[in-house]
Design a binder for these strands. Structure first.
Length: 288
RNA sequence: GGUGCCGUAGCUCAGAUGGUAGAGCAAUGGACUGAAAAUCCAUGUGUCGGCAGUUCGAUUCUUCCCGGCACCA
């Protein structure tokens, strides 16, 4: 008799209340919590990423919480590989239902649908391309992409430097058009996927966000960020809550302005999350 | 009670000697194939406090009313 294997993904905008909900769901189902959060993955970033607290972490086994050094690069592709490996292992050990939770839209989609085998980036080349963009703008890079890969050029936002460089990098590293690697095919998974979307009224969500930022300050956000100053340039620190405090430490603006910006940028993030998920009909929404 | 000032977008305010209005902040919609808490694109949402008068036309001028603030009693 085939064992049923189900991955229950609890998603929702930041600060909606995923942590508590997923822990109680995990306890109910006898599952660990598999985090799907591109920032809680990193070590030493606990206050600003609202990592579960000690009692929450001891209530149920958590995966992918604070496991990677902040100066290490980690991508959605890495997460797809690591998460699928873990999930397969846990299913093989006898779990029927596994609880995954998080707000990283792209990571969730990588787990559900898989990413194509696109060429890896080359850090040196990437740095060169960014230097060119800083000097002459995106336009010349976009033109170069147009000649190497007209299809990608026609599909992406050519004002989006990050996208243009990523595609150009793919072309230059592989010697082929970046688009040649895209199949758009969904990867077959060995388990069922169910998605629950947690939501609240916009007003309530924004109040929770604003309040949570103040709590982070009380909890010592400024000191946490100060301790991460040496890693400021790392990918992990390109994050709401950290960049604004770095600027405050530079005396670019007062603390209250940093707080205001963190609150606003977090609200913007929540809005982007909701935009992403709005087009996903497989999510069952639940108002908290 | 009297006098003066103010009432315009969610907030702070600007404005037209009469032709139904615009800045900042906030907000909203969208995109997304290895940086994704990143990156990028788009958008003004308004009975101009209310009733009436003058006028071809009033948010603008006038009367009155309502609300707020200040000062004088």
């Amino acid at each position: 008799m085939p064992m049923s294997r189900r991955l229950l993904i609890i998603l929702g905008p930041t600060a909606v209340g995923k942590t508590d909900y997923s822990i109680s769901k995990a306890l109910e189902l006898g599952s660990p919590v598999i985090s799907c959060d591109s920032r809680q993955l990193f070590m030493n970033m606990s206050i600003g990423t609202a990592v579960p607290d000690a009692s929450q972490l001891s209530a149920v086994k958590h995966y992918f919480i604070q496991t990677i050094p902040v100066d290490q690069a980690y991508t959605a592709g890495d997460y797809e590989r690591d998460a699928i490996a873990l999930v397969e292992k846990l299913f093989d050990e006898g779990h029927e239902t596994l609880v995954m939770t998080g707000g990283s839209m792209f990571y969730i989609d990588a787990v559900c649908n898989g990413l194509d085998d696109l060429p890896d980036g080359d850090p040196v080349l990437r740095a060169e391309l960014w230097a060119r963009a800083a000097e002459g703008g995106v336009a010349p890079l976009a033109e170069e992409l147009k000649s190497l890969d007209p299809l990608t050029y026609s599909q992406i936002d050519t004002q989006n430097t990050q996208r243009v460089i990523r595609a150009l990098e793919g072309c230059l590293v592989s010697g082929k058009p970046f688009s040649a690697f895209k199949t758009g095919a969904r990867r077959q998974r060995s388990f069922e996927i169910e998605k629950i979307g947690l939501n609240r009224s916009r007003e309530e969500l924004y109040e929770r966000i604003d309040g949570r930022v103040l709590n982070m300050l009380d909890a010592g956000l400024v000191e946490e960020v100060r301790s991460l100053l040496p890693y400021r340039g790392c990918q992990a620190l390109q994050t709401v809550g950290y960049r604004e405090i770095f600027d405050y430490l530079d005396e670019k603006y007062p603390l209250e302005e940093a707080v205001r910006l963190i609150q606003r940028n977090t609200r913007h993030y929540a809005k982007r999350q909701l935009t992403w998920w709005r087009r996903d009909p497989s999510i069952k929404w639940l108002d908290l």
